[in-house]
């Protein structure tokens, strides 16, 4: 474990807590892409099945359970409890165009052709693009509430910090995982324009307005 991964995991935890709390407190999921949340729930449930087979550490187990529980709870709030506030009209990204390539790529490029390894690889590929429906929705509505942009900043920072973690592990522990690294770079790259807008606008108290 290293500082980059710890801060990255905490940033990730912060992001999903910010989102769950925002929906719960405002009793509304306006501006939130339910499709992205479904993809994230799928990412965690497919990646963390090894909860039942391998024990890494208490930290690892607790965090996996939290990620699965919070992502499913968020989907429940969006699609069940506060369904009336779900913005169907702007959450229109075709997620089959993300799921199919992730499945195909996981079957073609993986470390080991076993059930759990294919699921893990699918989860890594899917996570790299899972935020697209949310970014697409923000671009369609042309703006995002500041709490949503804090959520996106924390979520984007987590994988950016993981890149530093992978560099650290490559040099200090002499191990690396190319699938996770390439997917992590793609995932972080997708946030770049958002990071720019967040730093130049939101941190100066302005609303996040995207050029529609």
């Amino acid at each position: 474990m290293n500082i980059f991964r710890i801060i990255g995991d905490l940033s990730h935890l912060l992001a999903i807590i910010i989102l769950l709390r925002k929906i719960w407190k405002t009793r509304s999921c306006a501006g939130i892409s339910g499709k992205s949340q479904i993809l994230f729930a799928l990412v965690y449930t497919t990646r963390y099945l090894d909860l039942v087979t391998t024990y890494v550490s208490l930290y690892n187990t607790v965090m996996k359970i939290i990620f699965i529980a919070v992502s499913i709870a968020t989907c429940y709030l969006i699609y069940m409890k506060f369904k009336a506030t779900y913005d169907h009209n702007h959450d229109t990204f075709r997620i089959e165009f993300l799921l199919a390539p992730a499945v195909i790529l996981a079957l073609l490029i993986n470390h080991d052709f076993t059930f759990l390894e294919i699921l893990w690889t699918f989860s890594i590929y899917l996570e790299s693009v899972a935020i697209l429906p949310q970014l697409f929705m923000v671009s369609k509505t042309g703006e995002a509430e500041s709490i949503t942009s804090h959520y996106l900043f924390a979520l984007g920072s987590y994988r950016a910090l993981y890149i530093l973690n992978w560099i650290y592990r490559y040099h200090n522990e002499e191990i690396y995982d190319l699938i996770a690294i390439v997917a992590g770079i793609v995932q972080t790259a997708l946030y770049c324009d958002f990071f720019y807008l967040y730093i130049t606008k939101v941190l100066r108290g302005k609303k996040l307005q995207l050029p529609a």
Binding site: F67, Y162, I175, Y176, D177
Partner: peptide, 10 residues
């Protein structure tokens, strides 16, 4: 450097 086998990351 070797390829990481066990997925010990989240």
């Amino acid at each position: 450097p070797v390829h990481e086998q066990d997925h010990d990351e989240l």
